[in-house]
Amino acid sequence: MSAQPEHRADPRVRPIPHTIDAVAGALTGAKRMAFYAEIGQAEEGEQINAVLRKWWMEAMFDSRPGRGQRLADADARRGLVSLPDLAGE
């Protein structure tokens, strides 16, 4: 048995560690600066954890190819699938 965490087999998206340095390294430009500004003002405990979670998710979304196109499609209401369709109902 391995002590290594299990990750999805999708080679396009590598997990980003939940650390300030890893999240900052995964963000670029204005997003990185906004992250540093927000994390720098966060208090110890839940507030800093919430900021880190928020920006970790942003970094993960950015790490998946085609985010801009997916957002544009959603704004234009192209390719939307209803929840019952996703559930196979």
Rank of each mutant, 00 (worst) to 15 (best):
R8Y: 09
A9C: 10
L86Y: 13
V81R: 15
R67F: 09
Y36H: 10
I39S: 01
A50N: 02
I20C: 07
D75P: 05
S82P: 08
T28Y: 06
K31S: 12
V13G: 08
L27I: 06
L27C: 06
I20Q: 13
H18R: 14
G29C: 07
P84G: 13
R53V: 02
R12M: 14
D75V: 12
V81I: 15
A72C: 06
S2D: 07
S63A: 15
A22C: 04
M60K: 09
P65D: 04
A59G: 10
P5H: 02
T19C: 00
L27P: 03
Y36K: 11
R77Q: 06
G68E: 15
E44W: 01
P65C: 02
P11A: 03
F61D: 10
A34R: 15
R14C: 00
E6P: 01
R12H: 14
M60V: 11
A87C: 09
F61K: 10
A9L: 15
I39H: 00
A42E: 00
R32K: 15
A30G: 12
I39P: 00
A30L: 11
M57D: 08
F61G: 06
L80E: 05
Q69R: 14
Y36E: 14
F61Q: 10
F35K: 13
T28S: 11
R67P: 04
A37P: 07
D21M: 07
D73H: 12
R78H: 07
Q47R: 00
D73L: 10
A87Y: 09
S63V: 05
G45I: 03
E89A: 14
A74D: 10
V81L: 14
V51Y: 01
D21C: 04
T19L: 01
A24G: 05
R67A: 11
G29V: 08
D75S: 11
P5L: 02
A37T: 11
W56D: 07
A3R: 13
A34D: 14
T19P: 00
L27A: 07
M33A: 13
V51F: 00
I20S: 08
E6S: 04
A24K: 03
I20L: 11
M33F: 08
A34I: 06
W56R: 15
I20V: 14
E58D: 12
R78F: 04
G79Y: 11
V23N: 01
D62C: 12
S82V: 08
E58C: 12
L86T: 13
R12K: 14
L52Q: 01
G79S: 10
P65K: 04
P17C: 05
R32W: 07
Q41H: 05
I48E: 11
Q69A: 14
S63N: 13
P84K: 12
F61W: 08
D85E: 15
A87V: 10
P11K: 04
D10W: 03
R53H: 00
E38Q: 02
K54A: 01
I16V: 13
L86P: 12
D21G: 07
A50C: 01
A22V: 05
E43G: 02
L71E: 15
A37Y: 08
A87N: 11
P5E: 03
V23W: 00
M33I: 08
R70T: 12
M1W: 01
P11H: 02
R12Y: 14
M60D: 09
V23H: 01
D73G: 10
Y36C: 07
R67T: 05
G29P: 10
G45N: 04
